[in-house]
């Protein structure tokens, strides 16, 4: 084995340190544990939802170093040293993030299960500086399926939060 390859980890559980919402989490997990399962099953942060586990619904959206990704199709061990933000880390204490407040005001959800993913995706959409016209919001929110069909209200919430941001 070449010297400049890191040590082999696993398949048995190995120590993995993640930084989630600014907090250090020392986990002992197999390399095959996805970031999503690490959050939900090992770090006691079930706000991130598992809708499909196949990258087809967006319910598991989290921010890694500020970028939105589906946490179900990535391994936790790939993200040691990264800054991970989940829905639990969005509000400032009791003060809601403006996007959360907008979702509440515009009723951008019903059952609430896709909602953490929608909100994180929307926060990222603003950070990406996507145009905030209706068509653009709908396109760049299309990675988050809402089976309750709250799309219109989601678009309204994102647009409203976007206006505040500017």
């Amino acid at each position: 084995m070449p010297v400049d390859v890191g040590p082999r980890a696993g398949p048995h559980p190995v120590p993995v340190t993640l930084t989630i919402n600014g907090m250090r989490h020392d986990l002992t997990i197999e390399p095959r544990v996805t970031l999503l399962d690490a959050l939900r099953e090992y770090a006691n942060l079930p706000g991130t939802k598992k809708g499909c586990d196949q990258g087809t619904c967006g319910a598991c959206t989290v921010l890694v170093n500020g970028r939105r990704i589906d946490s179900c199709l990535t391994l936790a061990i790939m993200h040691t040293g990264a800054r991970i933000t989940t829905i639990e880390g969005l509000a400032d204490g009791d003060r809601l993030h403006p996007m959360q407040a907008a979702f509440l005001e515009h009723d951008g959800f019903q059952c609430g299960y896709c909602t953490p993913g929608q909100i994180l995706s929307a926060v990222a959409l603003l950070a990406e500086k996507r145009p905030l016209d209706d068509a653009s919001i709908r396109e760049f929110m299309s990675g988050n399926i809402c089976r309750c069909g709250a799309y219109k209200n989601i678009v309204d919430a994102v647009a409203a939060a976007g206006k505040q941001n500017v």
């Binding site: 939900r40 006691n44 942060l45 079930p46 706000g47 991130t48 939802k49 598992k50 989940t86 829905i87 639990e88 969005l90 509000a91 809601l96 959360q100 979702f103 509440l104 005001e105 009723d107 959800f109 609430g112 299960y113 909602t115 953490p116 909100i119």
Partner: peptide, 21 residues
């Protein structure tokens, strides 16, 4: 009025069945 359970849903603190510790 806004949903009274809304805050729990938008902050990720609403606990669904699989999230029972």
């Amino acid at each position: 009025i806004d949903r009274v359970d809304g805050r729990r849903k938008i902050t990720g603190t609403a606990r669904y069945a699989a999230e029972t510790p």
